[in-house]
């Protein structure tokens, strides 16, 4: 494996792991000394021929789910994966219900029929329409 390929694999793996001291950055983005050392540790393991999964498992075994940018889909972590869709569905349903209720409550526009034409007015119109 050449240096470019190693760099590429280090970047791919480091982007999936979270910096443990800066919390909201990946290992790849972070400038923290610990993150730099972790990137070096990834590089060493990539050079030794370890797979991305093996390297991720090594870090996960030491820092737990906290280090994973995408927490494993198991146990209570399912909540993190499902909650946004659940919130969207519940929110959508509530919004639909409220809009429907609002539409039902709004009275339909009443079109009133004009009052019947009296005889005098009818004659006047006919007179005026005559050429």
């Amino acid at each position: 494996m050449d240096e470019t390929e190693i760099d590429q694999r280090v970047r791919e793996i480091a982007k999936t792991l979270r910096c443990t001291v800066c919390q909201t950055e990946t290992l790849w983005e972070s400038g923290a000394p610990l993150a730099q050392q972790m990137r070096e540790a990834i590089r060493t393991r990539v050079s030794q021929g370890q797979t991305a999964e093996e390297i991720r498992a090594y870090f996960h075994g030491r820092y737990g789910d906290y280090i994973m940018m995408a927490p494993p889909k198991e146990g209570s972590n399912w909540l993190i994966w499902v909650a946004p869709f659940l919130l969207l569905a519940v929110g959508g349903a509530l919004l639909w219900r409220e809009v429907k209720r609002w539409v039902t409550r709004t009275p339909a526009l009443q079109v009133e029929s004009p009052p019947p034409l009296d005889e005098e007015s009818r004659r006047r119109i006919e007179r005026e329409l005559q050429p």
Binding site: V21, P33, Q37, R62
Partner: peptide, 13 residues
């Protein structure tokens, strides 16, 4: 020497 012991122990700081 290169921070690997700390990573092996899952050290944060």
């Amino acid at each position: 020497v290169n921070g690997t012991l700390a990573i092996d122990f899952g050290v944060y700081g």
